[in-house]
C-alpha cells in the first residue's frame, strides 16, 4: 500500500508487487492442496459420526442426519462468486477513475467506493454463513475433535475462512484510503493485487464446494 517504486528500472516492465502476489498465489496452491488432500484421504475413514452425507446411529441409539447443509452453502457459494464480480468492477472503476462519466449508469459503474463496499459486504456475508454453519454443526454434535471428518473439515474450511477474513480487512483498508484521499489510476496496482488475492480465495472455494459439499 506504499507508493509504487515505478520509477525504478525493471527487466520485465511489470511491477514487482504483482509478480510477488502471483508467486504467493502459486505457493497458496500447495497450501490448499495439502489441506484438500488430507480431507480426501480421510474421507470415509471416520470411526464415529456425524458424517457429511450419510446418516449415523451411535451405539447409544442416537441418530445423526447428514450434516452438510447444501442449500445454505449453495447460497454462500453464490455470494462469494458475486463478490468476485463486485471486486472486478471495483478494479475497473479505479482504473477508469479519470474517464469522463456522463450517464447515471457510468457513474454507478465508476464508483470504486460502491464496488469495494459491495465486495467487502458480500465477503462478510459469506463469513456470516460460515459462522452459522460452524455453530449449527457444533450444536448437531460435530466439533473439530469429534472425528477425522470434523478435524479435516473444520481445518480446511477454517483456513479458507481465515483467508476471506484477511481479504475483508484488506478491502476495508482500501476503502479507508479511498475515503481519505480517493483511489485513482495510480492506485490501480494496489487494488489489482488485492483483487487477485480475493479471486484466488474465491477459486479455492469453487474447488472446496465441489470436493467437500457435492461429491458424496
Amino acid at each position: 500500500m506504499t507508493a509504487p517504486a515505478a520509477h525504478h528500472y525493471t527487466s520485465t516492465g511489470l511491477d514487482s508487487r504483482k509478480i510477488a502476489i502471483w508467486a504467493f498465489i502459486g505457493s497458496e496452491c500447495m497450501l490448499f492442496v495439502s489441506l484438500i488432500s488430507t480431507y480426501l484421504i480421510y474421507k470415509g475413514r471416520s470411526l464415529v459420526g456425524p458424517f457429511p452425507h450419510d446418516v449415523y446411529t451411535n451405539p447409544a441409539g442416537e441418530t445423526f442426519n447428514p450434516i452438510l447443509n447444501i442449500p445454505v452453502t449453495s447460497a454462500s457459494t453464490f455470494v462469494l462468486l458475486m463478490s468476485s464480480l463486485a471486486m472486478v468492477l471495483a478494479l475497473a472503476a479505479v482504473q477508469n477513475k479519470d474517464l469522463p462519466k456522463h450517464t447515471r449508469g457510468e457513474r454507478v459503474l465508476g464508483s470504486s467506493k460502491l464496488w469495494l463496499w459491495m465486495t467487502a459486504l458480500l465477503g462478510t456475508t459469506f463469513l456470516g454463513f460460515q459462522a452459522y454453519e460452524f455453530t449449527s454443526f457444533v450444536h448437531e454434535g460435530l466439533s473439530i475433535r469429534t472425528n477425522l471428518f470434523g478435524s479435516s473439515f473444520f481445518t480446511l474450511t477454517g483456513f479458507h475462512g481465515a483467508h476471506v477474513t484477511a481479504g475483508v480487512i484488506w478491502l476495508v483498508t482500501l476503502l479507508a484510503i479511498d475515503y481519505r484521499r480517493g483511489l485513482g489510476p495510480n492506485d490501480a496496482l494496489n487494488v489489482d493485487i488485492a483483487a487477485l488475492y480475493w479471486h484466488f480465495v474465491d477459486v479455492v472455494w469453487i474447488v472446496i464446494f465441489t470436493v467437500v459439499y457435492l461429491l458424496k
Partner: peptide
C-alpha cells in the same frame, strides 16, 4: 515456495492435535 506450504500444513495439523485435540 512450493515445498514449505506443505510442511506448514503438516505442522498446523500437529499443532492442532497437540493444542486443540484434533485427530489428524
Amino acid at each position: 515456495v512450493l515445498a514449505f506450504p506443505v510442511i506448514t500444513i503438516a505442522l498446523v495439523f500437529l499443532l492442532f492435535d497437540r493444542f486443540f485435540g484434533t485427530n489428524f
